[in-house]
Design a protein around this nucleic acid. Structure first.
Lengths: 224, 224
DNA sequence: CCGATCCTGTACAATCACTTAACAAAGACA
DNA sequence: TGTCTTTGTTAAGTGATTGTACAGGATCGG
């Protein structure tokens, strides 16, 4: 699992980002000021750091500089408020990898995080398992008995959600919210249709589900 | 049981939401204006607050700010009318946890409530005990002698109700109201039928009930 | 614009759970 | 003890939920 450090003095925003990242399967570290943030970045070595530009004690620019001065290569995404005078080029020169202007959308931030993680560590393949099949998050591939299983986007997202929430019954509403997002509300039966497809592709015996278990009257439960 | 505070000046909407939440097993508190709502939030400390953005006296934004200023961490869902100028990020920054645009569907609101409650208190596997069997609320599983006992929705809900009201005689009407809800009116004998099933599944000796005791002429009493 | 692919919703069948009726057993009470 | 009431228990009918195939529609790439 990859770790992301969030350094921001705005507690609610920090938590919002934190929760979002946890839902996406990252481990999250939080820091409320520049100094403790820098310290955590140096000692814990997260896979990525999200740093607010304006910070008490030590601002985002300084954190970038000091991290790089310490030969630390942790990728950094800088957050800047809409009114801030931001010099893109300067930021990138001092070691930031990307920057995002507040307010930003959930998808925007996630996309940039993924983009950076992908280009920074293409070699680390975090593998998740469903019985005898392997899921490679970096390559977005599912391999079963040595052969790649083709997954449509919805199927893949649903699978990842199951993998990240094992053992626990998940209602169709929870699944719709997390996989389809807050802003679209398809029929709950759509979930069933996609579960059927996952079973067809990943269950050894589709007649006896061992991984995608239905909990009658509630929803579904995933067992690795 | 989790408590939800609803602050809205539209009485019919307030009641609609209130009834819905009660049906879903929440305890509900209602407030018709911002000031009394804030007061209740501070004194009673509900598990979650649903706050209308437009309110007489003290609007939703102010309530969020003042709650957070008082170090109160109650999760807040903000309701906004469709025409309102809403700045998503601003709302989240001042301490709201989510927002819903009116008109909204029952399912939508419930899904968000559940999502928030889940992420506020995750990971805590609260185990309840019935003799030598364990009930895991998070996983919705009942384990006896190391083996999972299959529970239908009605059985499970009834069991949870007993667990939450131990030692006390519960009439069939109380049970029907709490477990089946205000809007369904089954025969009181239905309760008996389900108690039988609980005994079959959870009593060491079904002939000598030690946990699900009948109180003749009254109802049932649960002993952990 | 077309074709391919995927998503969504619907229809119908299969399965499961809930409810209730019926009768047996146990308790209350004179 | 006899009788009436309450509860235990089972099984069948009924309604609800889920499995699954399929079709219309959206989306994307050329």
């Amino acid at each position: 699992m990859q770790t992301i450090l969030v350094i921001d003095d705005d507690e609610s925003l920090r938590d919002t980002i934190g929760v979002m990242l946890e839902q996406e399967g990252f481990r999250v570290l939080l820091a409320g000021d520049g100094r403790s943030g820098l310290e955590k970045a140096l000692t814990i070595k997260p896979d990525l750091a999200i740093v607010d530009l304006r910070l008490p004690g030590l601002n985002g620019t300084e954190i970038c500089k000091q991290l790089r001065a310490a030969q630390n290569k942790t990728p950094i995404i800088v957050l800047s408020a809409i009114g801030d005078e931001v010099d893109k080029v300067l930021l990138l020169e001092i070691g930031a990898d990307d920057y995002v202007v507040k307010p930003f959308g959930r998808r925007e931030l996630l996309a940039r995080i993924r983009a950076i993680l992908r280009r920074v560590s293409p070699g680390t393949h975090t593998l998740l398992h469903v019985g005898e099949t392997e899921v490679d998050l970096q390559r977005r591939s599912v391999i079963r008995n040595g052969e790649e299983v083709r997954m449509t986007p919805a199927e893949y997202n649903l699978l990842i959600y199951f993998l990240q929430n094992p053992d626990r019954p998940l209602t169709r509403d929870m699944i719709l919210n997390s996989v389809w997002g807050y802003d679209s509300f398809p029929n709950t039966r759509t979930v069933d249709a996609h579960v059927v497809k996952l079973r067809q592709k990943l269950e050894p015996d589709p007649n006896v589900p061992r991984h995608f278990i239905t909990v009658h009257g509630v929803g579904y439960r995933f067992l690795p």
